[in-house]
Design a protein around this nucleic acid. Structure first.
Lengths: 339, 339
DNA sequence: CTAAATCGGTTAATCGATTAACTAAAAGGC
DNA sequence: GCCTTTTAGTTAATCGATTAACCGATTTAG
C-alpha cells in the first residue's frame, strides 16, 4: 500500500463520481445522496485509510489553515514559551503553525516572510526585529492579516499588536526596590532602538527621578554579540561605583549577568541586589531566589492567535492590546536594613 | 493592490501564455523563449512582486518541500535546540519545517502525524513517545520517509535512526566518578520503558558492578508528573543513606534536582557530588560548575535532516547512526580526598 | 392526468503552476 | 528553391478537491 488514497480511488471503488464522495465526506449530502450509499462511502474511506489532501483543498479554497510564526530567537525561553502557547491555541481553531526564527536579523526576517507568503499562510504572528518597517507596511498594503507581539512600531498605524506595558513594568520595579531601601540602582539593557526596550528604560529613569530623586540614573547599554565580555566589565564597574542593585532588562542579560555574579562570588543581595525582566526556569538553581517581572506569556499567545484569526475571518479593526505585568519578589531584592 | 499575483496576471500583462512565464521564471527557457522577452517577463514579475504559489506547485509536483518535526517537548532545551538546528539545516536544502510537540502523549503524537500527512509533508523527523509503534509501522508501510531521533524501537527494523550511545555515556560517567574517588553513586531517572533510557540505566549498573564492585547499585525511578515532590523525598533519602554522588539522567530531572539541593542548602560536591545528562544554559548560575554529558545536538540535527532528505530523494537503505557523547567535567564531581 | 417538486446523483469548471506535445514561422543547408 | 532545423512560442492535460449547474427518474400536488 504505497500509494496515497485520493477521492478518485474511493469513487472508483464505489463506482460513483468524485463529487459524491466529496459531498459525503464533507457532510454536505443531505437531500443529495442516499443515507445508505453515504455510509458505504464513509466505510470505504475509513477502510482505505483516506484522508484528504490539504494541499489540494487549500488551493481550491484559498485557505491553508496555517499561520506563520516568526520570532526573534527560538533559543530564548520567552519566545519558545510563547511559541508553545501559540501552537496550542492554534490547534483549538484547527490551525497549524509553521515557524521560523529571525535571530534579530532583518534580512532573515524578510526571507522568512517570503517563504511564508509563498506557502500561502492565512496570517502571521511576528516579533519583528528593527529595520523591518518596510516589510510590515508591505504586509499591511497586501492586506495580509498579521499580529505583532512583544515589539511595536509607532510609525505604523492601525495594525494589531499584543504586548505588555513595559514602561509601567520598570516603574513598578523601582517602586519595589525603593520601598526596600535601595538608593542607587542601575539598569543594564541592550543597545537597541526597539521601542518596547526604550519604554523599559524610560520607566526606569522616570521612576528613579520621581521616587529616588535621582536625576541621572545609571543605565548601561551592552551589545548583544559581546554580551558576556561587556557585562563582566560593566558589573565590576557598578560594584565599584557603589550601586546597590542591578536591574537586568532581559532574560538573556539576566542569565549572563547572574553567571558572572556567581563566578565572581558576589553576594546577592548583600553586595548587590538583583531584579530581572522575564522569567526563567533557571532562576531556581541560583543560590538566592530572584525578583523578576513576569509577563503573561500564555495570554500573549492566546490573545494573538485570537486576534489573528478574527482578522483572517474578515475583522478589519486593528486592536492594540497592552497587558499588565506582575512583579514576583524574591530575596534578590530583599529589604536593606543598613542605610 | 489587494489581490495576489499569479502567473496568469503576468501572462496577461505581457500578452503571452502562462506556459512561457512559467518556463522563464523557472529558467527552463533556453532555446524556447527569446532572451529579450525573458528579461521583460522577469522584470514584470519583479515589478508586480510576484512570487509563486507553493501550494499549487506542491500539488503539481507532489512535493511540498516541507518536513514535519515532532518532538517530545518544546519547552525542554534539549529538543528546542535540536529543533533550531533542524530548522537551520533544512533551510540549506530549501526545506521548511512544521513542528509540533507531542508532550510524551501517544494520542497527541498520532494526531500530529495525521495533520502532517494531511499537509503532505515530504518526510518526518520524530522523537516518538512510547506506545507509538503501531503508528511507526504504519508510516513504514506507507513508505513515508522518516527519521527517529533520540529514541529508538528495537522491534521495528530497518528504519532510520539518529541517537547517541546512551549505555556508553553512563559507563563513562561511572569511570569518571570512580577515578575521582566516589564510592557510592546513585542514579535518578524517569519511570519509563523507552529503550534509550534503559540503556542509560544499564550502562550505569554494569559500570558500577565492574568498576566499583557494587552488585546492587542504587537507581531511583521518579514519575514525570510528580517530579518535584518525588525528587525531594528521594534526594533526602540518598543523603541519609550516605550516597556520595547523584547522576541525574535527564535535563529536566537535573534542573529540579539542583533546585532542591539549593533549597536544602546541600553543598556540592562535598555533601553530594553531581553529574547530569544533557546540557543546560542554566548550569552556569549554579554555585558549582556542573559535570555533564554533552550530546552532539547540532550533529543530531544536521544528520537527521541529511538522512531524511536522502530518503526523500529515493534512498531505500535505512541507517542507524549512533553518536558518541562527551563528558564535560566540572567541580560538581571533583575529586574526593577523604576515603 | 399533467406540471412541479424531490431524489440521487453526474458533469465540468476551477484553484495556480507545470510540462509534454504540438505548431507556425524563420533560418539554414545543399 | 525546396527541405530540414531551429526559434519562439501555444495548447491542453494534470495534480486532488470543491461546487454550481444540470439531468433523468420518481413522487407529489392540484
Amino acid at each position: 500500500m504505497r500509494k496515497k488514497i485520493s477521492l478518485k480511488d474511493i469513487a472508483n471503488e464505489m463506482g460513483v463520481s468524485t463529487a459524491v464522495v466529496s459531498y459525503v465526506l464533507n457532510n454536505k449530502y443531505e437531500g443529495r445522496i442516499s443515507e445508505a450509499k453515504a455510509n458505504e462511502i464513509k466505510n470505504i474511506a475509513k477502510k482505505l485509510n483516506y484522508f484528504p489532501n490539504q494541499i489540494a483543498k487549500s488551493l481550491k479554497k484559498d485557505r491553508t489553515f496555517t499561520i506563520g510564526l516568526i520570532i526573534a530567537d527560538i533559543s530564548n525561553l520567552f519566545y519558545s514559551s510563547i511559541a508553545r502557547y501559540i501552537e496550542n491555541e492554534s490547534k483549538k481553531y484547527n490551525y497549524n503553525v509553521i515557524f521560523g526564527s529571525a535571530d534579530e536579523n532583518a534580512d532573515k526576517f524578510n526571507e522568512l516572510i517570503q517563504v511564508m507568503l509563498g506557502r500561502q499562510v492565512d496570517g502571521i504572528i511576528l516579533a519583528a526585529p528593527k529595520g523591518t518597517e518596510t516589510t510590515l507596511n508591505y504586509l499591511k498594503e497586501r492586506q495580509l492579516p498579521f499580529v505583532l507581539i512583544d515589539r511595536y512600531f509607532p510609525q505604523i498605524m492601525e495594525i494589531n499588536t499584543v504586548g505588555v506595558n513595559n514602561y509601567q513594568a520598570s516603574y513598578t520595579v523601582v517602586q519595589h526596590i525603593a520601598a526596600n531601601g535601595y538608593k542607587k540602582p542601575a539598569m543594564v539593557t541592550l543597545r537597541t532602538d526597539l521601542f518596547h526596550m526604550q519604554d523599559r528604560v524610560s520607566g526606569f529613569k522616570d521612576a528613579c527621578r520621581q521616587l529616588l530623586g535621582e536625576q541621572d540614573s545609571k543605565v548601561v547599554e551592552v551589545k548583544e554579540d559581546m554580551l558576556s565580555e561587556e557585562l563582566e566589565e560593566c558589573l565590576l564597574n557598578l560594584l565599584e561605583e557603589q550601586n546597590d542593585l542591578v536591574y537586568f532588562s532581559t532574560n538573556k542579560i539576566a542569565m549572563e549577568g547572574l553567571a558572572i555574579l556567581v563566578k565572581r562570588d558576589v553576594k546577592v543581595p548583600n553586595e548587590m541586589g538583583i531584579v530581572c525582566f522575564d522569567q526563567a526556569d533557571a532562576y531556581k538553581i541560583f543560590n538566592t531566589s530572584i525578583t523578576f517581572i513576569k509577563q503573561p506569556l500564555q495570554y500573549i499567545g492566546s490573545k494573538s492567535v485570537e486576534m489573528l484569526i478574527s482578522s483572517i475571518n474578515g475583522n478589519r479593526f486593528a486592536e492594540n492590546v497592552v497587558l499588565e505585568t506582575q512583579i514576583v519578589s524574591g530575596n534578590s531584592s530583599a529589604s536593606r536594613k543598613n542605610s
